[in-house]
């Protein structure tokens, strides 16, 4: 996938207050994200960041306007096609991480990697080591801090081939040092795959460069 286009997009819940969103660079306009580029979408609370991510990732369809992958409307995609996109070209780190609390860190990651067979177990261990959570590999996810859970969710998202990496406030609970550590892991994966990045932020952005900054 080379591009993601948002055309006249607006969540249904904003229909009554369209005027308030006229100044947005995403809502009610046309914007195309290109593969290989990196975008940070800045927004205040309640501006619809998570909604935008969920729309692009096909989790929600309560919007007006169109989303196009390489010029094709995503509303036409079926469950099987979404499944293939989510394992072969579109990765996502949701704001709530969506880890399985009863599984260990390693099992949470393997749940994704066993589908894609993208990384070896040793490579995953190295990523955990670089993220500073290798010692937590066999700890249940619900025993981790939010910051640690964010790091696990990011590593899990990297366990697949990428055209675009979609991240919803992925480092909101990380200090600058860990933010930089995760940014370097993400940077390597994006470079390796020639992938694009769309990341949202409310004030603690992922410390990655160069980026195109957008206002929601």
């Amino acid at each position: 996938m080379e591009s993601i286009t948002l055309r006249q997009l607006l969540p249904d819940v904003f229909l009554e207050e369209q005027e308030e969103h006229r100044g947005s660079e995403i809502w009610l306009t046309e914007y195309t994200f290109r593969r290989g580029n990196r975008y940070v979408v800045h927004a205040g609370s309640g501006a619809g960041k998570s909604s935008m991510c969920a729309f692009i990732y096909g989790l929600r369809t309560d919007y007006r306007g169109e989303i196009l992958f390489d010029g094709k409307p995503v509303r036409q995609l079926g469950a099987e096609q979404w499944s293939q996109l989510r394992t072969r070209s579109l990765a996502y780190v949701p704001q709530e991480m969506a880890l399985f609390p009863e599984l260990t860190v390693m099992d949470n990651i393997m749940l994704k990697n066993s589908m894609t067979s993208h990384l070896t177990e040793a490579e995953i261990h190295r990523l955990l080591q670089r993220a500073g959570i290798a010692q937590k590999a066999s700890v249940r996810a619900d025993r981790l801090s939010i910051g640690q859970q964010q790091r696990v969710a990011i590593i899990r998202a990297l366990c697949q081939p990428l055209d675009f990496l979609l991240m919803d406030e992925p480092v909101s609970h990380l200090d600058p040092e860990n933010n930089r550590l995760m940014a370097s892991l993400i940077d390597e994966a994006l470079t390796l795959n020639g992938a694009g990045l769309i990341v949202t932020s409310v004030g603690n952005p992922l410390l990655i460069n160069p980026v195109t900054e957008l206002k929601l």
Partner: peptide, 10 residues
Amino acid sequence: RLIMLGYSPA
């Protein structure tokens, strides 16, 4: 969550 990870409903 499994569908979000890429598992197909089928």
